[in-house]
Amino acid sequence: MPADPHSRRPAVGEGPVTRLALIGLAILFLAAFLALPLAAVFSQALAKGFGAFLKGLTDPDALSAIQLTLTVAAIAVPLNLVFGVAASWAIAKFNFRGKSLLLALIDLPFSVSPVISGLVYVLLFGLHGSFGPWLRDHGVQIIFAVPGVVMATVFVTFPFVARELIPLMQEQGVEDEEAAIVLGASGWQTFRLVTLPNIRWGLLYGVLLCNARAMGEFGAVSVVSGHIRGKTNTMPLHVEILYNEYNFVAAFAVASLLALLALVTLAAKAILEWRFADQIAAAKR
């Protein structure tokens, strides 16, 4: 058994029978609720053989869905990364009034239903939305087009990077940065040479989670996309369309790609947590 520095043996504890029963119960529960769905995705994707699986993935609509998903994540993640860094710099390195209110507001998108996250933009930019007629007259389409998909994704992934960085940077304090400034470094130098090396793993961790959600978001995107095949369909939406057309093999083939992405995310996350536990704040929320 590997030595674990955190393992601590209390003089009291459960008997071996209780122990085994609890471990068994936990494993059974997790197998039923986590492992089984995962197994279902892959077994259904390969139910009609590897050829059918590949056909589902290489269909032009599937390919364009994959491309759109990558594009949307490539826009939404950097935007929220810049926001996360700015917000954590302001919140963690300075003391100002109303900080806890600002923190609560940053978390707000987490407690809003994904459907509502899409709805708010439809009400603003949809054809019957407040800016709808104006946008139509100027030939700009946001809802049922790619910009709407990007906006909804930015909304739902809004807090991810900020939430990782704020506790981390608060924990690290301001002494290092103050020393750099006193020694004559510019603000940008201080950030790049002092702060950034301290937060890089936490930053990567936040980006990882943000990206997983950006590529996997369904509800918010579903409301604003209009489900136009080959145009505004992301991978999670394409899964739904194929499933509703009873094209199960293709639906699960695309789903298996997303499941793979989830597994890669989990593996990368676990590696970051084990290797850089002290440099990732709030890793265990």
Binding site: G216, G219, Y243, A255
Partner: peptide, 12 residues
């Protein structure tokens, strides 16, 4: 947290 909700939905 990591699995897209539509994937979880059709799997379940």
């Amino acid at each position: 947290f990591a699995l897209p909700t539509s994937v979880a939905g059709i799997a379940l």
